[in-house]
Amino acid sequence: MIRDITIGQYYQTESVIHRLDPRVKLLGTLLFIIALFNYKNPLGYVLGIAFLFMVIKLSHVPVKFITKGLKGIVIIMLMTVLINLFLTPGTAALTLGKVTITYEGIATAFTMMLRLMLLIMGSSVVTLTTTPNNLTDGLEKGMGFLRVFKVPVGDVAMMMSIALRFIPILLEETDRIMKAQLARGADFESGNLIKKAKSLVPVLVPLFVSAFRRAGDLAMAMEARCYRGGDGRTKMKPLIYKKRDVIAYLILFSFTIGSIFIGRWHVISDFFYSLYVNYILK
């Protein structure tokens, strides 16, 4: 039941995307998200979808695995769709008593849903193809400039990697404790909301106890190995850009340019049209 959560999970296989420098992938996600919010016409989404599926294909991660992550946001997606569908003003397409659905509403609801889906899928691709360690390394390097502002980047990166590392451990622990209490006749499914919430006490108390115990053990182990905070620590595998990373940056760059042109085509064409009208015709 709990194993269905795919966010933050790593899918082990061999592919170009897996081998890419995490910084490329992080910047790629950022650019992809910005591009998604910039598309003003359907052609842009075609480009976005095409780009995403190209990356998925290259990553050798089964599409089924990536779409699994969408299950978790079904409710948020439904709410967005419904709100947009009923509350967008415009030309009425359908009137049911007091509520009206407008053409504009249908259009925004659809694009919103598409945007959310692409957003989740795009970020899942990164976490599925990058080990948590690699991801924090990438963040640490990529955010290195924040040191200038006295942000303890190294410590934050260490905390993040520990937090990420503990997600699967705690999930497994939860599963184990739930099973142990089920074996003692616990019932997590029946009853009303209050009863269900109460039935989680036998799971949450041992879970917290074990989380604190693990945190204590880890702190002790780190101290024993003389951990003294982030700055000046060297890496066993430092991040170095390779040829494939440069190529990936080039592809990303052209995707961004393409997104600007296609996604905002009418703005650009209007601009050139006005140039043409104002300067050449006159």
Partner: peptide
């Protein structure tokens, strides 16, 4: 289960032992 002491949660031993029979 293995390491069954990790499933204890009640305030005292007796209450914890009562959890199973109460459930059934």
């Amino acid at each position: 289960f293995q390491y069954p002491e990790h499933q204890l949660f009640e305030t005292d031993v007796f209450a914890d032992v009562c959890f199973g029979p109460k459930n059934i």
